Simulated assay, not measured.
Amino acid sequence: MASSQKCLGKGSCAPGPVPKGKIRLYSMRFCPYAQRTRLVLTAKGIETETININLKEKPQWYLDKNPLGLVPILETSSGQVICESAITCEYLDEMYPEKKLFPSDPFAKAQQKMLLEDYSKVIPLFYKIPMTRNKGEDVSALEAELKEKLSKLNKVLVNKKTKYFGGDSVTMIDYLIWPWFERVEAWQLKYCLDGAPELNNWIVRMQEDPAVKALKFSADVHKVFFTSFIEGKPNYDYGL
Rank of each mutant, 00 (worst) to 15 (best):
A211C: 11
Q60C: 02
A196P: 00
G45E: 07
N154E: 03
Y33L: 10
R133S: 14
D138I: 07
I129D: 12
G79T: 05
C31K: 06
P124D: 03
D118E: 15
K233H: 14
S228G: 07
E198M: 10
D174T: 01
K99G: 03
T132D: 09
K147Q: 12
Y62I: 08
R205D: 15
K100H: 06
R38L: 13
S85L: 01
F229E: 02
L55K: 04
P197Q: 04
I173P: 04
E143Y: 05
E182K: 03
V71F: 04
S151M: 08
D174R: 08
D105Q: 12
P32T: 01
K149F: 06
I173T: 12
K56H: 08
N154D: 15
L92T: 05
G11E: 10
I82W: 02
V122D: 04
A211M: 05
V71E: 07
P210V: 09
S78W: 00
G9Y: 03
S27Y: 02
Q112Y: 07
K109N: 12
Q5L: 14
L189S: 05
G16R: 09
L115S: 09
E94Q: 15
V224F: 05
L25F: 05
F165V: 06
P67A: 05
D105T: 08
G21L: 09
V221N: 01
P17F: 00
L8D: 07
S120M: 12
G21N: 06
T37G: 10
Y191S: 13
A214I: 11
W187A: 08
S104V: 13
T76K: 06
K163T: 13
M172A: 15
E94G: 06
F107Y: 15
A211V: 07
K213M: 14
S218T: 15
L176F: 06
S104P: 00
P59T: 06
L146A: 05
D194G: 07
A108R: 13
S151Q: 08
K20E: 14
D93A: 11
L125G: 02
V158P: 00
D93M: 07
W61L: 08
D64W: 02
K58T: 07
Y127H: 13
G166D: 15
M95I: 03
V40S: 03
Y164Q: 10
A219S: 14
C83E: 04
K213Q: 15
L157W: 09
K149V: 06
I87L: 14
Y175N: 07
E84F: 01
K113D: 03
G136D: 03
K10N: 12
V122K: 01
